[in-house]
Amino acid sequence: MTVRALDNAGAESILAINLRRFGRDRFAAMAGAIAIGFVVMAAFAPWLAPHDPSDSDLLRRLQPPAWIEGGDWAFPLGCDSLGRDLLSRIVHGARVSLMVGVAVVLLAAAVGTAAGLAAGFLRGAVDAVISRVVDVLLGFPYLIFAIGLMGMMGPGIENIVLALVYKEWTIACRVIRGETLAARELDYVEAARAAGASPAHIMFREILPNILSPLLVVATTRMATIIILEASLSFLGLGVQPPMASWGSMVADGRSYMLEAWWISAFPGIAIFLLVLSINLASQGLRDAFDPRYRP
């Protein structure tokens, strides 16, 4: 009992040490702060947005950003083809991107971790079945797979999450399976087995806490990809449906006004780019802090 308590304390402090190391990488920490800023923006969107995102006024149709002639500081980034405030729509659009990103990453990590642990620890038939399913799903280009599913299930935010999770879990699964295969040969697993611990106990209480670092790195990296995928599906018209604001569908709306109102497409795209870039930078910092191979 005492041994296990010591063990767990050790595992926690490794994560803590890693996180502190991450905090010292100023560039990555700043990127992380920007990403968290987006999360705050999404959480408090109704209070932060200057206007109602679906409040249209045809008199303000295609109104340019404030610093361009004809602009108005009450609508700093201008208005879209229905006279809706772009800034408010971008602030609210962050909700869709982050909600889908977080939901997909969490669900995929949960399913992938369970499957990866089972495949890597139990081996045999369980491993064979799980690995074959992963192989088959890897045979599909991601976007094609998601588009095919969305086409069959119909649009909507829950369906986007489902369509992405159906393939996304394979990534966490492969990482966790590999880590588990390596961990099951280590002494602490051997010791737990000798002490008569059940397989479930060994998988979830012994191995899992020790392989959380790679899972965290993979999850943040994947979050960036998922946000772009959601935006892509929404851009194609397969994502969330109007009047809900999503960055991808906002870029699509602006396509018809490229000549007279560039801002409709430009600004939501910049928002996606900034969020994804900050997540990528932060996850690179996490990887450097967590993985000894990348340490200088």
Binding site: A224, I228, A231, S232, F235, G248, V251, A252, G254, R255, M258, W262, S265, A266, P268, G269, I272, F273, V276, L277, N280, L281, Q284
Partner: peptide
């Protein structure tokens, strides 16, 4: 290269067209 992987393709394409 980091910017390149962070840019949504549909947006980059539209900016090129514009």
């Amino acid at each position: 290269s980091l910017a390149g992987v962070s840019m949504p393709g549909f947006w980059f394409g539209i900016m090129l067209i514009m």
